[in-house]
Amino acid sequence: MVGGEFINLLSLVKREVCDSRSRLIGHLQDLAVELRESPPRITDIAVHLGWTDKVGDIHLPRPVEGITLLLPWSEVETWDPEAFHLRSEHPDFPVRSSEGKVLLRRDVLNKQILDEEGNRLHRVDDVLLRREGLLLFLEGLQVGAEWLPLGKRFNEILARLRKRYGRGRAENGAQLVPYQAIVRIDEEAIVIRSRL
């Protein structure tokens, strides 16, 4: 595996988010990934704000509570195990549209994994990310655990993927479907490479 610190999506979700004045403004809800890059890079951060009266350049007639906004990853100044710290001051954030974007929690986590023949293999139990400096990259889909066994067929596919892409087991006895093995992400399921 390449270097860097590995981190699970589930450990990031609900992490606190602070603005440039270190005020707690909400929590992390999701991350958008660019699958056309290799390795896929996290491009946006979805933040669930406690409240706001401004979305991008638009001033709202009255404040709204509990809104989720997609902000570019470049907005993240730094992040640590406690919180994400943003460059801008609440509520002046540059927002992005989520149209056409793949969001890891919304579109990947818990989703059905299919092989290329359409057989159901397992669901995505977690998403493994790799940190390089301030950037985050998708490493793969985490499946199974010691208490959650995988089927023989899926184990065989994973063994072939390991051989091909050289990526091994994740922590806690879980295994990894490397990002290179993802064929496509549909609304209903994620199709992975099985004919190797």
Binding site: Q112, I113, N119, R120, L121, H122, R123, L148, P149, G151, K152, R153
Partner: peptide, 16 residues
Amino acid sequence: FGWEAGIDHPYEEAPH
């Protein structure tokens, strides 16, 4: 859990 299911599948495909 996303495991293959159904009586139209042989045991090897749907062991769970």
